[in-house]
Simulated scan of single mutants.
Amino acid sequence: MSEEQTPAGADASAIRRLSEAREKIVAQLSQVIVGQTEVIEELLICMFARGHCLLEGVPGLAKTLLISTLARSLNLSFQRIQFTPDLMPADITGTDIIEENRSTGARERRFLEGPLFSNMILADEINRTPPKTQAALLEAMQERTVTVGRTRHQLSDPFFVLATQNPIEQEGTYPLPEAQQDRFMFKVFVNYPSFLEEFEVARRTTAVQVDRIQPALSGQEIIELQRTVREVPVSDHIIRYALSIVRQTRIGTPGVPDFVSDQVGWGAGPRAVQFLILGGKARALLHGRTHVTTEDIAALAKPVLRHRIVVNFAAQSDGITADKIIDQLVSVTPSKEDALTNDARFKKIFAS
């Protein structure tokens, strides 16, 4: 099946539903947020693909404002958790308390839910809290349950964690290990605004502000859209293309490019392939298509892979970043099916 063909049985109404949802959310966000178009799209892709997102950027770039405004534009319960060095796991998961039953006088155990029992969680400055609390959050992200004592409690559905961290102030922080960052579908960089965007920010924020954010989607509608994303078909060629990009990050694998062997200490795991394909499905629908192309996969390679590739010390000292390596990988990976499957180097990668 070629990339240009629409697969049989594809639901054209899926495009309309997701397109309408996107327009509603963007319209609400634009009342408060200036620019950040790419960041907003990646957040929406992550949400509709049922993933979690890690945002990184210097202070003052409206990361927290963006997430809180997104929560207001959705008819979901929302909790903001400010991560601090003294935050304990029970502070976010909840705890059992002993209280007296007024009718019988007996003491009974009751579970008091923590802030994780909401649909959308803003984990603000996640790298400021100790690993024990980070692990409690990451367990909830992966299992979508919380275990307190001997009882497992189911979290709400839908459930998103949008975490922020500051890349420049490392004193008193506990950086997330790569294995824990792997729980996040995307790692999104929030960059400085352009001149015109910053001009608009300065104009808006120094005048009287009136925003009328209205919920654009309900929780049930989001769940239905997530199910629609899963139903988008993907050709074998697209899966091979995603696999080829990810498998080229793994040093020691036959056919891996020399620059990867020289610059990478550790590569991405199978979860990266899953998120590339799921993200590609959501992006395709957001862009008005019911089929995934190699362009979708290439466009999401950075947010999916940048926190799953460990650049070795020698490469870091030369100013090489994970993003630069990903750009090289995309450039050396053919997007056409015949070129990919007939290339001797990729035959080695697929056979390993």
Rank of each mutant, 00 (worst) to 15 (best):
R50V: 13
G60C: 02
C46P: 06
C53V: 12
I40S: 02
G35K: 00
L43A: 06
E42K: 15
G51F: 11
V34Q: 00
G60V: 04
E42P: 10
L54I: 11
L61D: 13
G60K: 03
L61F: 15
V58I: 14
V39G: 04
I45Y: 03
Q36T: 10
H52T: 06
V32N: 04
V32H: 05
C46W: 08
L61T: 14
V34Y: 00
I33R: 04
E42R: 15
E42Y: 14
T37C: 08
G35E: 01
T37G: 07
L61I: 15
A49L: 03
F48N: 11
L43V: 09
F48V: 12
M47Y: 12
C53Q: 07
M47S: 09
I33H: 06
I33L: 06
I40D: 02
I33W: 09
I33Y: 09
V58L: 13
V32G: 01
V34W: 03
E41N: 01
C46A: 11
M47L: 14
L43S: 03
A49Q: 03
E41W: 03
E41V: 01
T37V: 11
E41I: 02
L61H: 14
H52M: 11
V39S: 07
L54P: 09
V39N: 07
E56N: 06
P59C: 15
Q36V: 12
I40G: 01
L54R: 10
L55I: 08
F48S: 11
I45P: 02
L43K: 07
I45A: 02
L43P: 05
I33P: 06
A49D: 05
A49M: 03
Q36N: 12
L44H: 07
L61G: 10
L55M: 09
E38W: 00
M47I: 14
V58E: 08
V32K: 04
G51P: 07
R50G: 12
H52G: 06
G60P: 02
V34E: 01
G60Q: 02
F48E: 11
L61R: 14
Q36A: 09
F48Q: 12
F48Y: 15
V58G: 08
C53N: 05
I45V: 12
G57S: 12
L55W: 09
V39K: 09
G60N: 04
E41K: 02
G57T: 11
I45F: 06
E38D: 00
Q36D: 10
G57Y: 14
A49V: 04
T37L: 08
E41Y: 01
C46F: 09
E38V: 00
I33E: 04
E38P: 00
L61C: 13
L55T: 07
I33G: 05
T37A: 10
L55R: 07
L55A: 05
T37M: 06
T37N: 10
A49G: 04
T37Y: 11
R50T: 13
G51Q: 07
Q36H: 14
